[in-house]
Deep mutational scan, measured.
Amino acid sequence: MLEGKVKWFNSEKGFGFIEVEGQDDVFVHFSAIQGEGFKTLEEGQAVSFEIVEGNRGPQAANVTKEA
């Protein structure tokens, strides 16, 4: 699992990017966010995740919000 911070997330469109120190930003789709209820992320929020190869390159999977 990697750790990063949410760079930005558009809850209307359901996607955004996660910043990872020393690496390129990683695309995140709302469907990759773990948990119940409305799936969104806040700018600057700490998250842990895995990287998988998507249709358009690397993207986040199994995203969990850090306490």
Results as ranks from 00 to 15, higher is better:
N55E: 13
N55F: 13
V28W: 02
A61K: 11
G22I: 04
S11W: 11
A61L: 08
E43R: 15
Q34D: 12
V20K: 07
I51P: 04
A32V: 07
V52K: 11
G57I: 04
G14S: 02
A60D: 00
K7V: 06
V20T: 08
S11F: 12
G54W: 08
K39W: 06
E66A: 15
L2E: 06
V20E: 02
K39H: 07
T64L: 14
K5N: 05
P58F: 11
G37C: 05
A67C: 06
W8D: 02
E12Q: 15
K39M: 08
T40P: 03
F9H: 01
V52Q: 11
E50G: 08
I51K: 08
K5R: 10
K5C: 05
H29N: 04
R56K: 13
E53I: 14
F9G: 00
S11P: 10
V6Y: 00
V26F: 06
S31W: 09
F17W: 07
L2R: 06
L41M: 07
E50I: 08
G4C: 02
K5W: 07
V63Q: 00
G44K: 08
A67R: 12
K65R: 12
R56Q: 14
I18R: 00
W8E: 02
G22H: 09
I51G: 02
G35N: 09
A67Q: 11
S48G: 08
G37M: 06
E42D: 12
G44Y: 06
Q23G: 11
Q23V: 10
E19D: 07
F38I: 10
E3N: 15
F38W: 13
L41S: 02
W8I: 04
V47F: 01
A32S: 12
T40I: 10
I18H: 00
V47M: 02
E21Q: 14
F17Y: 09
G4I: 01
F9P: 00
A32K: 06
G16L: 01
F17R: 03
F27D: 01
F49N: 00
A32R: 04
I18P: 00
R56E: 08
T64V: 13
F27C: 02
V6T: 06
Q59V: 10
I18G: 00
K7E: 02
E3W: 15
V26E: 01
E19G: 11
F49E: 00
G35Q: 11
F30M: 08
F30V: 11
F30E: 05
G35H: 10
F9N: 00
E3S: 15
S11C: 05
A46M: 12
G44Q: 07
N10H: 08
S48P: 00
E3P: 10
S31D: 07
F49S: 00
P58Q: 08
A46N: 13
F15W: 14
E12N: 15
V6E: 00
P58H: 08
A60G: 05
A60N: 01
F38Y: 13
N62E: 05
F49T: 02
F27N: 02
T40Y: 11
S11V: 14
G37F: 05
N62H: 10
T40Q: 09
G54F: 08
I51T: 07
K13A: 10
F15P: 00
A46G: 10
V52L: 10
S48Q: 15
N62V: 07
R56L: 14
I18Q: 00
E42Q: 13
G35F: 08
D24I: 11
W8M: 05
M1K: 14
E50R: 04
K13H: 13
E21D: 14
N55R: 13
A32Q: 10
K7N: 03
S11L: 12
E53S: 12
N62P: 02
A32N: 11
N10Q: 08
T40N: 09
N10C: 06
G37V: 06
E12L: 13
G22Y: 08
S48R: 13
T64R: 15
P58W: 11
K13F: 08
A46Y: 15
A61F: 10
V26C: 04
K65V: 12
V47D: 00
E43H: 15
G57T: 04
T40K: 09
G54D: 08
G37K: 07
E43W: 14
P58R: 12
I33Q: 02
L41K: 00
Q59W: 07
Q34M: 15
H29E: 03
E42P: 06
G22L: 06
E36I: 07
T64N: 13
E43S: 15
G22F: 10
E36Q: 09
V28Y: 03
T40M: 09
I18F: 03
F17P: 00
D25S: 06
H29M: 05
M1W: 12
E3Q: 15
F15C: 04
A67H: 13
E12D: 13
E21Y: 11
V28S: 02
I51N: 03
G57L: 04
K13M: 11
N10A: 08
V47S: 01
K65A: 12
V26A: 03
S48T: 11
Q59P: 01
F49C: 03
E53A: 10
E21P: 14
E36D: 12
E36W: 05
S11H: 15
M1V: 14
I33R: 00
G4A: 04
F15A: 03
F17E: 03
V52E: 08
E36A: 11
E53L: 13
K7L: 06
E66Y: 15
F30S: 08
E19S: 14
V52D: 06
G22S: 08
H29A: 03
F9A: 02
E36C: 05
Q34L: 13
K13T: 07
Q59S: 07
I18A: 02
G54I: 07
V6P: 00
G14Y: 02
T64F: 12
K5Y: 07
S31A: 10
I18K: 00
K13N: 07
